[in-house]
Nucleic acid binder design. Structure first.
Lengths: 155, 155
DNA sequence: TATTGTTATACTCTATAACTATA
DNA sequence: TATAGTTATAGAGTATAACAATA
């Protein structure tokens, strides 16, 4: 019974977290996917579209769409690759870099505000609990996939 | 510092949970939105499209699309409303009802498996921690919105 | 006049397949 | 021949606006 309660609490939390994230991005004229792409550039520097496709785990075709949109809205820019004439280097514009910096700041402030009024021990315990649950989840998922694969083979 | 750690742990957990949910739905030929609609029918019985639009918080137009798809795949059905000739009653087909029952079962089993090997006290503490964090999040979000609204008025 | 649902149109995320230019 | 990116096409979530039938 209490396992279900925990699961439901987690699902409710996910919903709130996600809705909040999307609102914040919206305010800045960004979407989750485009932001993910900017984040990769922010933390890894200019990259080819092939590299981005790999990093975001989407098709190269979709990277074309995302970069088109980010170029049109002034967050990123395409440059010729210095040595490979097939390739393109995508990089942040000043506007893109600025928005990523402000999102980093906000993330830190949000994290700090989240635990305001809690003592360190409780925070530490919560971190451990959340990480434990995630480990358990990943284990269950892997197990489930294994059993599905076995069932499919057995057919 | 540790606040950010907690936030990141939660974000990582959300990502895993969500990916898993989508895989499960995929296996059954459903999408998150369509499943949400089925869930409303499962827990509330036949409903008009206007009611569903309200429950899912999307436009009536989008409900048309979702019900079209659920009808085409055999999970739901449209019937004339007995007293209001403008309206339509959407209800689960036997297939839709069956899939919802099996999802309920799976949800319970998943919750139980999630806490296997943990003692009750730890589970209770985790539930409290997650709920506390969610309360804190909602508070921060509301506060943030209030300050944004004030800033907008002040302009 | 207000409500229910639909047609029309558009934007975003995502995928596969076919193709061009370059390695 | 393999790789980088693009054109073409398609399905899904979502929105707004205009409109028909009915209350």
């Amino acid at each position: 019974m209490s396992g279900v309660q925990l699961l439901d609490a987690l699902l409710a939390l996910t919903a709130v977290l996600q809705a909040d994230q999307e609102r914040e991005l919206d305010r800045r004229g960004l979407t989750p996917s485009r932001t993910h792409l900017l984040w990769v550039l922010h933390h890894g520097g200019p990259a080819t579209q092939a590299h981005l496709a790999h990093a975001l785990d989407v098709t190269p075709r979709h990277i074309t769409t995302l970069v088109d949109a980010l170029e049109a809205t002034g967050f990123a820019r395409r440059e010729p690759h210095p040595t490979d004439r097939r390739a393109v280097l995508v990089s942040l514009t000043e506007r893109g870099a600025e928005v990523m910096r402000s999102m980093d700041d906000e993330h830190d402030a949000f994290g700090a505000a989240l635990v305001e009024g809690l003592d360190d021990a409780t925070v530490e315990a919560s971190i451990r609990a959340v990480e434990h649950v995630r480990g358990r989840l990943e284990h269950l998922i892997a197990e489930n996939e294994r059993s599905l694969a076995e069932r499919d083979e057995g057919r």
